[in-house]
Nucleic acid binder design. Structure first.
Lengths: 139, 139
DNA sequence: TTGTTTTAGTCAGATTCTCTGATTAAAGTA
DNA sequence: TACTTTAATCAGAGAATCTGACTAAAACAA
C-alpha cells in the first residue's frame, strides 16, 4: 500500500473526529472553516498567512473568514505594523472551541498509543516531524 | 505540534506532487478526479466501493466518474456478477497515467528515505499500517 | 523625492465539488 | 410471493475553490 494512502486515512479520520467534537459542542462550523480557524494564532494572523497555511488562495481564505466573522468566531482588527494588513483574531466565543478540539485530539492520540504502543507512537511522531522539514512549503 | 497537522502536511505534499506529475505527463485531471482515479482497481471497481475508498458520497463519486468517463479515462461495464452494479474500469488511455503516478510516488519515498533514513521510514510505514486498522472506516 | 514594484486585501464572476432527498431496478430474504 | 436491502442514478441546492481585475499601502530604486 502506498504511503500517500497510508497518510490519507488517519488524516481524514482526525479531521472528521475533530470536526465532530467541535460541532457536537455546539460550534457550527464546516470542515473548510475549521481548517482556517485552527490556524489562527493566539495573537492574530494575517489573511495571507492563513491562506498559505491552509493552502488555499487569499480569496478562498477571505471567503471562509467572512463566514466565521459573521458567525462571531473571528474578528478582523487593523495590523498596527502594516497599514495594508489586518489581523484575523479568534473571539471569546470561539476560544471555547479550541480546548474541545485539543481534548479530542488528545483522546485520539491516547487511543492510537493504546493500539500501536508508546514506542511506535514516538517513532511515528519523530518521522512525521522530520518529513515536515521537507514537505511543508511554509516553514 | 499536533499529530493531525503532522499527518496533513506530507499527505498534501504527496497529493500535490502526484497530481502535478500526472498533469505534467499530459493527463488533464483535477485533484478530486485523481483521488477517484487512483482507487480504481486493475479488474475494475464498483462505484460504491470507489465512493467509500475516497470518502465521498456515491453521488459525488458518480459525478467524478462521469467526468473521467467523458474525458476517456474511465469506462463503465456491466458487472457480470450483479445486474444492479457496473464496474468502473481504467481505459487504455489512462493506463499510462498509473505508472507515472507510481513512479512519482516511488521518487518521493526515495527522497523521504534519504532524509529520515531507512529505519525510520520502515517504522513510519509500520505505524501507519497499524493505524489504518483503527482509522480506516472501510476495512 | 519621485516613480516603480511588490504586497495585503477585496470585488466580481465562474467553476468545481459535494451534499441531501427521492427514484429505479436488481438481489437477497422470510 | 412480499418485504428489505443494495447499486446506481436523477434532480436540485449549497459549499468551496479558482482566475482575473482592482485598490491602497509599503518597500525599493534612481
Amino acid at each position: 500500500m502506498n504511503i500517500g494512502l497510508l497518510l490519507f486515512i488517519p488524516n481524514r479520520y482526525v479531521e472528521n473526529r475533530m470536526l465532530a467534537a467541535v460541532v457536537n459542542a455546539g460550534f457550527e462550523v464546516t470542515q473548510a472553516q475549521a481548517r482556517v480557524l485552527m490556524r489562527v494564532g493566539p495573537e492574530g494572523t494575517r489573511l495571507t498567512e492563513l491562506a498559505e497555511a491552509a493552502q488555499v488562495t487569499k480569496q478562498t481564505a477571505g471567503f471562509l473568514v467572512d463566514q466565521l466573522e459573521q458567525a462571531g468566531y473571528l474578528e478582523r482588527v487593523p495590523d498596527p505594523t502594516d497599514g495594508r494588513a489586518r489581523l484575523v483574531r479568534v473571539t471569546e466565543k470561539a476560544k471555547f472551541a479550541v480546548p474541545v478540539a485539543n481534548e479530542e485530539m488528545a483522546r485520539m492520540e491516547a487511543e492510537w498509543e493504546q493500539h500501536i504502543g508508546k514506542r511506535r507512537m514516538a517513532q511515528l511522531r519523530e518521522a512525521l516531524e522530520m518529513l515536515g522539514e521537507i514537505t511543508d512549503p511554509y516553514r
